[in-house]
Amino acid sequence: MINSILLVDDEDLFHLVFEDACSILDITLSLEALNSSDEADKKFKQWFPDDPNHERPECVFVDLNIIGSSFDGIELIRKINSDYGNGCVIGIISSSDDNKEIEKAKAAGAQFWLVKSDDIEPRLEQFRNDYDGYLDKSNPFKVYK
């Protein structure tokens, strides 16, 4: 089970879907959901330079296009990886499966790409099974379609 998950997604309804799916699949006990990449950036900024030992989420799911944010999910991943110490499993969760964007996310340091759809549970289950590999960085980048 993943200790804690941070979800960054502008869609409130998806927060509920994700939370229920994670609970049903026993993926995590602690889930925090944020609506914008700016909020996430602010939190990581607080944790990293001022308090690097602060307990940060073990895994971060970032939406690709976060409406109402100054920058998109790929930029947030880049910031978390390069500016805030790369201390968590991080990837994109998006309804898009555009190869160009997937390659950009991979280049920014995303470890996975999970495609959002009505039937998200099987993909989350697969992700949960692969999770240990992401934690010890032994798994290659993977797209869950």
Binding site: V17, S23, D118
Partner: peptide, 20 residues
């Protein structure tokens, strides 16, 4: 009970999401 209610809520939420 918790699982059943979550499954129900998930189903409703997905439906609402789809309608949205």
């Amino acid at each position: 009970r918790d699982k059943d209610s979550r499954i129900k809520r998930l189903s409703v939420t997905k439906q609402v999401q789809k309608q949205n």
